[in-house]
């Protein structure tokens, strides 16, 4: 497995309403080598920020992030070739009118020859069983099909790490199951944030994030328990449930 490392990573942003920069991630160090890694935590805890760091979409204010030894600031091009990123809302990710065209767009950089590109796209779509939907407008696909299409576009260039930010949040039960099975069949290293604790339980290792810090790091079952406890204790006493 490739290794994703965080070395005392801090992310702080300037805001208009506070004089001091706001700290989103606070001196996090990690070494991620397991195949399937989950990231859970409350809204606004910093999950998306952690994931974006892996792809260089967010750059550390201090410290550094590397993927297979490549620095996300200095070698951002290499990093992005190796790290695929799937967003929560596939509509913001699919830029072409049909899935096939979007997959071909992914391949524009790596495959210059038009015929070869078409074949590679065909293969990538076939791998996720999407050939029948390939020429349909992305607006006429169901949410789950659309998410799979976005996944196909990302997988087409064969990244070694796949980062997914709450990929199942917009999906119904059936589509969630479809996505879960598809992900289970992949060989890539997967780093995924989710609010779906059942999905988190299937991971090899789970990080619990709270206010920009990793407050728990370990096996899935223990992590989910920790998160449940955190949520319970976080609520003021006397509130219903």
């Amino acid at each position: 497995m490739p290794a994703v490392t965080f070395d005392r990573v801090t992310v702080a942003v300037e805001t208009d309403n506070t004089p001091e920069p706001k700290v989103l991630i606070d001196a996090v160090s990690l070494e991620l080598t397991e195949q399937r890694i989950g990231v859970i935590g409350a809204n606004g805890s910093g999950k998306s920020t952690v994931l974006r760091l892996v792809n260089g979409l967010v750059q550390p204010t201090a410290g550094k992030v590397t993927v297979d030894g490549a620095d996300t600031v200095r070698n951002v091009r290499t990093v992005r070739r190796n790290v695929g990123f799937v967003f929560t809302d596939p509509l913001s990710q699919l830029v072409m009118p049909t899935g096939r065209e979007d997959v071909e767009l992914s391949l524009r950089r790596s495959v210059r020859n038009g015929t070869e590109r078409r074949q590679a796209a065909e293969a990538a779509l076939d791998r996720l069983g999407l050939l029948e939907l390939a020429d349909q407008s992305i607006y006429e696909l169901s949410g789950g099909e659309r998410q799979l299409m976005a996944l196909a576009a990302v997988l087409a260039v064969n990244p070694s790490v796949l980062v997914l930010d709450e990929p199942s949040t917009l999906l119904d039960l059936r589509n969630r199951e479809l996505l879960r099975r598809t992900l289970a069949g992949l060989d890539q290293q997967i780093i995924m944030s989710t609010h779906d604790l059942e999905l988190a339980l299937e991971m090899d290792r789970v990080l619990v994030i709270e206010e920009g810090e990793v407050v728990f790091d370990g096996g899935a079952a223990a992590a989910v328990d920790h998160y449940r406890m955190l949520c319970r204790d976080g609520l003021p006493a006397g509130k219903p449930r």
């Binding site: 792809n55 979409l57 951002v76 091009r77 992005r80 070739r81 695929g84 990123f85 967003f87 809302d89 913001s92 990710q93 830029v95 767009l105 992914s106 524009r108 950089r109 576009a153 990302v154 260039v157």
Partner: peptide, 17 residues
Amino acid sequence: AFARQTGEALAARGLGE
């Protein structure tokens, strides 16, 4: 917002830089 999401999604795919 849509423009920025699109730009970010392109960047994540290594396109458009």
